[in-house]
């Protein structure tokens, strides 16, 4: 008897909770925008997705964000399910066009326009909004070498598990190949794990123990790594400017650190993630709602957005009042 009542209760609760959820979702008819972020726990993914969602809501669109939690199978599954619900458009942040090719093709066949951000090209989507990582990598590398007078020793923290950060590293290698006055005395390559911060801390601590006193420059493949390294150096009492320190991505925390005299981080190449998210919405508005031709926005598979080098000179413009 007891068992029956408990089962009934749970069944009822399940039904109720689903009804409640749907109530909130069914509120808006009209333009339905679905935003799929590959991994919301990654700050840059979340920035793109949240900016796109905010821009969509500002236009009065009904907007939902899905999170693939960094899992390829889940990514493909969510896209496939989304296509069933026939949204007006889909924006994918840091997606995987090759792995999800089957699903993207289905979206195209179903007439659902897809704009991706920082994902890579695909014949099945309108276009991919990108920062040119080669340009970004070159900016960061040349800023660092310029600050060092093209002379000295550096440490690098790399991440080859992601296309963008890998390209930044390769461009650094190309720049170093031409400028032999700068030597890489130590390097740590981060593993792709959930505890990557620990990995960076351990790796860099070892490198700094060996080379800490002799280095003139530090290069990190993305800002998240730079924060970890910055905290190690701060704890060791290193002063700003003693070591020229650059990384890439940009964001409120990065700008705060660049402006902060206690932080060691000196420069970043700021990728306009928010502008990419809202830009995706803007483009969809023009193509889907206002029926403009895609060619009016971009001819190729990519829509490039410029990244900006931010250092002591211009950081004030980026700090929020």
């Amino acid at each position: 008897m007891n068992e029956i009542t408990r089962r009934d209760l749970v069944g009822g609760a399940l039904a109720l909770s689903t009804v409640g959820l749907a109530g909130t979702a069914a509120a808006a008819a009209g333009f339905e925008l679905a935003v799929v972020a590959f991994q919301m726990s990654s700050e840059t993914h979340a920035r793109v997705a949240n900016a796109a969602a905010a821009a969509g809501k500002a236009k009065g669109w009904s907007t939902t964000i899905l999170n693939s939690e960094g899992s390829l199978p889940k990514h493909a599954e969510q896209l496939e399910t989304l296509i069933q619900s026939k949204p007006s458009a889909i924006i994918v942040a840091m997606g995987k066009p090759v792995e999800a090719e089957e699903q993207l093709k289905k979206a195209k066949d179903a007439g659902i326009p897809v704009v991706m951000v920082m994902s890579g090209a695909s014949p099945h989507i309108l276009f991919d909004i990108e920062a040119n990582e080669y340009k970004v990598g070159a900016e960061a590398a040349l800023w660092l070498l310029g600050q060092m007078g093209f002379q000295g020793k550096i440490l690098t923290e790399r991440f080859d598990g992601n296309v963008g950060t890998r390209i930044r590293g390769r461009v650094l290698d190309a720049v170093l190949a031409e400028n032999t006055g700068v030597k890489v005395v130590g390097s740590h390559a981060m593993a792709r794990t959930q505890s990557w911060r620990d990995d960076v801390r351990q790796g860099m601590q070892t490198q700094l123990l060996q080379h800490g006193t002799e280095i003139d420059g530090l290069w990190a493949s993305f800002d998240g790594q730079a924060f970890v390294i910055d905290d190690i150096l701060k704890a060791q009492g290193v002063k700003k400017g003693q070591i020229k320190f650059v990384s890439i991505d940009g964001g409120a925390e990065t700008f705060r650190r660049i402006a902060d005299p206690d932080s060691l981080l000196m420069a970043t190449v700021a990728i306009p993630f928010e502008a990419m998210g809202s830009g995706a919405v803007e483009a969809l508005d023009r193509i889907v709602v206002k029926k403009e031709a895609k060619a009016a926005i971009t001819a190729g598979p990519y829509l490039f957005m410029d990244a900006t080098l931010v250092d002591a000179v211009n950081v004030a413009q980026f700090l929020k009042p």
Binding site: S17, T18, L21, A22, A25, A26, E32, A34, A37, M40, S62, T64, I65, L66, N67, E77, Q78, T81, L82, Q84, S85
Partner: peptide
């Protein structure tokens, strides 16, 4: 359940919780 939650447009964190 996961499929239905996506279809009704539940936010990603709601899906995890449910």
């Amino acid at each position: 359940l996961g499929n239905g939650l996506v279809l009704v447009g539940a936010a990603y964190y709601v899906q995890d919780i449910v």
